[in-house]
Design a protein around this nucleic acid. Sequence first.
DNA 1: AAATTGATAAATTTGTTAAAAAAGTCAGGA
DNA 2: TCCTGACTTTTTTAACAAATTTATCAATTT
Lengths: 205, 205
Amino acid sequence: MISATDQQDVKKEKILEAAHHRFLHFGYSKTTMNEIAGDLSMSKALLYYYFPDKSQLYVAVMRKVADNYLKSLTDRINTFANLKEAFIFQIDTQHDFIVTNYNFFDYFRLNEQNLPEMIWEIVARVHESETELLVSAITTEVERGQIKPVANPNEIVEVLLDALHGVRAKSLSHKKTMFPNKEHLDEIRSKRLLLADIFIKGLMY
Amino acid sequence: MISATDQQDVKKEKILEAAHHRFLHFGYSKTTMNEIAGDLSMSKALLYYYFPDKSQLYVAVMRKVADNYLKSLTDRINTFANLKEAFIFQIDTQHDFIVTNYNFFDYFRLNEQNLPEMIWEIVARVHESETELLVSAITTEVERGQIKPVANPNEIVEVLLDALHGVRAKSLSHKKTMFPNKEHLDEIRSKRLLLADIFIKGLMY
DNA sequence: AAATTGATAAATTTGTTAAAAAAGTCAGGA
DNA sequence: TCCTGACTTTTTTAACAAATTTATCAATTT
């Protein structure tokens, strides 16, 4: 027998899917609760039965999206042959994550200031997970004797992540095209790989 | 005898000073041509005699500010004992430049898209100058045999500048305080120095 | 002629308000 | 417990007037 709670979870899941679809294609502000309800052939009121309001629905979708990303990270932790592999994985995985969810994050970019606290918690979780992956890779590489022991791997990783972010931000700013195209993205990727290379050598003996 | 053109230049200079003062303290949108004229006890119409419009006045001030910065860079080119010194100089000089002109750049940040072409030319000049300084420092260090020969120093420097920018951007985003305070700035500086250190080691043999 | 101004025109921003759209609520039905 | 239609409240949009600011120009001074 299927419990009521399970049924609810199934329906909630359906709603999350529909909402994700809308948010992903049209962004937060350009999708209405009516439309999401319409997509599911249900009344708007029912959405409010399952989720308290629009922004918390968005947060729930975000959490799901983030959890998927998180999982793809934790699945691979400690599976790398060397530090470089780990760096490349981080660069490509994060890149893919951002590109495939580009529109979804418009709400995020638009409000920047005064976002619900929960959003920041999710962001923090993601960041921690990214950090963890790389810290672990560095620690392993130290144990293997490939690079110098580092006093504070966390600090190193944070600087690396900031730096990688900078490569993206700088390349994308003052480009007219609202949408990053293939060439840009390739340019960013190769710059990041160059940075990663130098960085790794910088950690060696 | 003082030529009419010299007189004009003197007066233009006065106007640039007054405009800079206003832009620096209140930003572009919060200063009016009337106020600038008032500061100089002249009529607003006279401003338009010397400068075609507000935005070109701003650009002229910007050019002056940028030229000063540029000069501080070219003055020091090829005067560094080693690569690290050059990097530190770059970090500190640029940092100082941005902090002392923080408000002045609000116009810059606010419009981001659709800025007058001249602004981008100035930005490009500054960027080239920063790049030149660092490329020269790297080339010198290669000649000294301190680091490995690099195929494309320009590429390396560009990545470094992007990365340094990233350290700043990441640390400053999602901080509520419109104004970066001392502690933030110190944190950014030390992160940047760490990055520079790793980077330099990454360029060694 | 070159430098300057007051008056005035043109453009932009700000404030107001009404209509439209969207968010969010609720009494009641299956 | 799940669900809806009808309803209320809040937010966004549009239109327009008022106020501010940019920009121009004929007239005046140096």
